[in-house]
Computed example of a mutant assay.
Amino acid sequence: MAGNCVEVAFNKPKVELHVHLDGTIRPETILDVAKKRGIALPTDSAEDLARLCMLCKPATLTEFLCKFHHFMHVIAGDLTPDEVVDLVNRGLRAGENTFRIKARSILCCMRHMPNWSMEVVELCKKYRHSGVVAIDLAGDESLNCEAHPGHRKAFEEAVRSGVHRTVHAGEVGPPSVVKEAVEVLKAERIGHGYRTLEDRTLYEQLLKKNMHFEVCPMSSKLTGACDPDFTKHPLIRFKEDKANYSLNTDDPLIFNTTLDVDYSITQKYMNFTEKEFKRLNINAAKSSFLPEKEKKDLLNRLFDAYGMKKPALKGGTENSRDIQLIMSTHSE
């Protein structure tokens, strides 16, 4: 698996904001669940199953999504969405205590299922004090909110209720999808956002707003979202412009990646330095959806780990350390 022999580019605490729970499952876990449920798989070897689920060369977003068909039927049980959210949050709390990290969930709507979105935002509201920190929207970017108003209504309710918002946009879709995410859905962060660079006016507006981009280097290569030549990646422009962004794995099972792999890629092909790694992680912490006090505690942990002087606080807009998990309430 990835990361066993990779050179560690940044051996310090990191903040990851964009990683899908259904794309992080260990092959061993899939096999265990399949055995308990009496579900036959094409192999009983964890290594062979991992290879079956992986994308190993640049493909398309459709080919990427097809990889989930190998195992989603195993983990999609008979639980209600409410039960799933509750159990995931319990698991994340246990992980927080065991590994001394921050781990929270984001509930994700799907563009092709607008009739789900109101239920998703209601779950966000119900579990906002138990681990859920935001709502998201992912899927086919050609399906806009004008044709599918269910998403707009759900995100309007999120705004009214004070639920944080992030949206997958500009990964393979045009800049207009990013514009819709910001102006219609009131997104506070953009998942991926690479195509924003094709609209200079929009990009400059988002730079001024300090919009956060959740960048996924290995993912963007293997889904065909970006040029497979990392030296031409949009992230380089983000870095040059001092944009607000984070580095993320997206779906480590499918892309056979780890944070160390993605950080190594940016160091090797994009000339990232330790100074830039520190800057992007501080910005990621500030852009996280943690409660303000936890954000401050997280930022202070980062400043200590990085040997940086803690800046004077101005009205409480400082932030925190480690991992937030994006959870899908669906299977594709």
Rank of each mutant, 00 (worst) to 15 (best):
S176V: 08
S161M: 12
G77S: 09
M118W: 12
K36Y: 06
H129Q: 13
T196E: 11
I101P: 01
R279Y: 07
H164E: 05
A181H: 08
W116P: 00
L49H: 01
A34N: 01
S176P: 02
L206V: 02
I135C: 10
S288R: 14
E83C: 06
I326M: 12
F64W: 02
G307P: 06
V120A: 01
L253K: 07
D82P: 02
K67N: 02
S220Q: 12
M1W: 00
G23A: 03
R301V: 09
R237K: 12
R160E: 15
I190Q: 07
S264N: 08
F71C: 02
K153L: 14
S161E: 15
A40S: 08
E96K: 13
G3R: 09
H148T: 05
L61M: 10
N300Q: 15
V8N: 13
V15N: 10
K296L: 15
A46P: 03
R189V: 12
G307D: 05
G191C: 09
L65R: 10
V163Y: 13
F277C: 00
M113P: 04
H151S: 00
V6P: 00
D199K: 14
A138L: 10
Y245R: 09
N210T: 13
A305Y: 05
V261T: 03
K295Y: 00
F230Y: 11
H112L: 11
N89M: 06
P217R: 06
A225N: 00
V172C: 12
V84Q: 07
T80L: 06
V19T: 15
H73M: 10
K314G: 10
H20D: 02
M54W: 03
P228T: 09
S176T: 09
V159E: 10
L247N: 10
H168C: 00
D32H: 12
S264D: 05
G91A: 06
E16K: 12
R90K: 14
T62Q: 14
V133R: 08
N319W: 15
L259N: 07
L299S: 13
P234N: 09
E141L: 07
L61F: 05
K286Y: 13
L325T: 09
H69G: 07
S219D: 01
I75C: 07
V133C: 06
K67L: 04
